[in-house]
Amino acid sequence: MNNFEDLQNKWQNQTTISATEDGFQSLLKSVKFIEQKQRTGNIVLTITIVILVAFLLYVSGYKSATFMLGIGLMICSLVVRIAVELYSLKKLRTINFSKESNTFRSDLTSYYSFRKYTHYVVTPLAVGIYTVGFIILLPLFKATLSNGFYTYIQCSSVVFLMVFSVFLYKQAKSELLKLKQLQLED
């Protein structure tokens, strides 16, 4: 009884939600919001770069080699990690969703393979270098800051590192799972 044509008939006769004016207005609102968010993101990024450059110019006046090494390692690792993240975002945005599904799938697989490299190599290296930079600065903090503030910096840095690591781990886990599923598919 249930041949495919029968199933097809049931499928096409099911009641689906039709387009409404409210639905369209809400969609248009989302579209405009995304465009606005992208513009805001660019402004925030520009401000961050300006602040970072200003900070580098400010600290370049210090003569301490240890300070310059520590702060240099911390800033460099951050810059590299942010640059890789921005490059990834650009790569993801250039994936064309209107391509044939097969091509789209291989583009997506190639994107997540690149992210795998980021998660396994770039991120641990960046976190490691950032930590080394911070450790180099600790004796200077101890010499110049009050005991209480020094302890606060030590504790908060450990908490920050733990929270940040959990965040990175979750992101890596989710993306690696996506890659695995893409590669598992027929």
Binding site: F97, S101, F104, R105, S174, Q181
Partner: peptide
């Protein structure tokens, strides 16, 4: 065809999150 492609690809990319 163009819209179907976008739809299929969107579902392929997004569904993994919800599996």
């Amino acid at each position: 065809t163009w819209i179907y492609r976008i739809c299929v690809n969107t579902c392929l990319a997004e569904i993994r999150r919800e599996r």
